[in-house]
Design a protein around this nucleic acid. Structure first.
Lengths: 211, 211
DNA sequence: CGTCAATAGAGTACGATGTACGCCTAAAGT
DNA sequence: ACTTTAGGCGTACATCGTACTCTATTGACG
């Protein structure tokens, strides 16, 4: 077997991540990654099938930092909160990768591992069968949506600032709310929303009707 | 004032939507839209600044179908459900536009109108100040995330099928859950998640602690 | 220690995309 | 009928992903 590979998947993913951390997602291209590595553009294709696979490796590199295993003795709420917290931390550490994570999460092993552990917590809480399916999907929908919202908001220089300057005649409540929103810390907002979601789950466990 | 415009923004958005409905998002390009309209590619630039603006027009065309106004005498839960229901219906009607909606929702007037009405319902429910901010953001995060999840799942021929075939050794709960998930209708799943979210909101209104 | 052949590396090239530029021309107002 | 303004669009270019092809390296074997 002649000529061993000189790069690893992590090398490539790392280079791509470096490019994105430095110049953002639009700067990510086969050529920029190759340059970052000091190799020819086409050499990358010895390691990845196409750009999409490269993106998946970046996602895995970022999400690989998440340890989804959580103390078994904690309450299910704490378990879920911990997992989501770590997940958020990993994604937030590389904001430019948010769109990639959104695009590839449904086939990411790391996401699967997290889902598995979330399911463990949900099962421990008492969820089974279809309700458990709905509970999990609801959780990941919220987390994904919230992470993306924060990323999008951060793009155009705090999107809420724009909202706050809306004419109160056209959007009385929205304009007022946006002004309050300016004073809400993103993390507080994220975990505040998570608490509500968890309350909803707890409700479904207690009795059927919310009241 | 010589030579009136022969196209309207709706014409262009309509053509773009036609292309996307027929051939999907990847087929959307300045050239395909121009061809669809029977005009030269560069003519489009008399009407839109760039591709991004064209995409925004598509989003507005799709979301413009949403009537966010809802009967004032209904309960806040019903009001929110109605708004979200209509929103989902409009987006689902043109699945290929989901990524566009995700990318541009933070500056879409239609989304603002919906947000305004959601806020009205939340206010009626009793939310004020920062909790109201968190409630709204949580709602739209869930809705966005869930819509995107459904779209992504539909892409690779029901992503859950893949999940269901995972080795139960590596992901015991996930594999089992995916099998249940195959029998859950997407709409049931979406509104089931919404109910949980609404329960969480109701909980925060009732007393602080969930119990 | 030379020889071989398989494989990594990479240059070139092609089709597609978004769009800047500038010419041509249609049509509204005088 | 003429002028003038703005719409229509052909051309051209930078950039992208990537198919094809050639070169050169290097581990294994005699």
């Amino acid at each position: 077997m002649p000529r061993p590979k000189s790069l690893s998947h992590s090398d490539i993913a790392g280079a791509a991540l470096a490019v994105m951390d430095r110049d953002g997602l639009p700067a990510l291209s086969m050529r920029t990654v190759a340059t970052q590595l000091g190799v020819g553009t086409m050499s990358l294709y010895r390691y990845v099938k196409d750009r999409e696979e490269l993106e998946r490796h970046v996602v895995e590199l970022v999400l690989g930092a998440v340890d989804p295993v959580v103390p078994a003795e904690k309450s299910w709420r704490e378990q879920i909160t911990r997992i989501v917290e770590r997940f958020r931390k990993a994604v937030i550490a590389h904001p430019a990768t948010v769109p990639l994570f959104m695009a590839h999460r449904h086939i990411s092993p790391s996401v699967r591992r997290c889902s598995e552990e979330l399911l463990r917590a949900l099962t421990r809480a008492g969820f089974q069968g279809k309700p458990r399916v709905i509970a999990l999907r609801m959780l990941v929908s919220y987390v994904s949506g919230a992470l993306q919202a924060q990323h999008l908001g951060a793009l155009d220089g705090q999107g809420t600032v724009v909202l706050a300057s809306l004419s109160p005649d056209d959007y009385p409540l929205l304009a007022a709310t946006a002004r309050s929103a300016l004073q809400v810390d993103p993390a507080k907002e994220f975990f505040g929303g998570l608490e509500i979601v968890l309350d909803g789950l707890a409700q479904h466990l207690a009795g059927k009707k919310p009241r």
